[in-house]
Amino acid sequence: MDTDVIIRVEHMTAAYEDVVLLDDISFEVQRGEIFVILGGSGCGKSTLMKHMIGLYQPAAGSVWIHGRDITTAEGSERQKILSGLGVMYQGGALFGSFTLLENVRLPLEEFTELPRDALDGIAAMKLKLVGLGAALHQVPAEISGGMQKRAAIARAMALDPPVLFLDEPSAGLDPITSAELDRLILRLARYLGITFVIVSHELSSIDAIADRVIMLDPRVKGIVATGKPAALRASSENPWVRQFFNRQPPPDVV
């Protein structure tokens, strides 16, 4: 197997009961790349991500992470795969009764033996990296939606996992914070070699960070384009992909 492939999705079909969302899709994510899953609302981007992290079981096919099939792994093997992943959910999914510091400290507490002052220091550093140094001791309900999102990113990278999944990281952030976040993602990818799988439809952010995108189209229930964003914008054969990248509405019927 190619050692540079960190995630491989093979002939996967995703369905909610009888409704097929994604039909027989296959792709690979290379080590250290920033990989973006792109598509319009409701095309199954988040669903695909949840299949990739083993939350949902595919109707057919398999998902390989670090050479292990997450769809069949159980018990300690599954735990091992999951401990190498960090996930940020769309709504943040922070624990409401914990402060931000406690939220980020939780995975460190559970998976390392570090002394308390080190745990606090590392958690505070992660939160400062996403610009939340002033809100360490607040609970999620006391901060804005954008801040919750950044705190969720800090929690996802608490253990610096080799693969980070981010579901709509820059949605709801102001342009400056969004640009800061993009810079942080680029730095982590470059310096630590972290692989990012990002679900997004923020074109400006995608242009800035993405090494490669795949584009999902609900009409074909699969991938309609793969490549660098600039190349797809300029010369994709699919008119819908070009419209998407150039923010054009569909042709007017009237």
């Binding site: 550093m125 400062k128 990296l129 809100a135 360490l136 001791h137 607040q138 730095r187």
Partner: peptide, 15 residues
């Protein structure tokens, strides 16, 4: 680079 970045954000005010 990472150490520089971390030290830079660390100097900012924290609660």
């Amino acid at each position: 680079h990472l150490l520089d970045l971390a030290e830079q954000v660390d100097s900012e005010r924290s609660a």
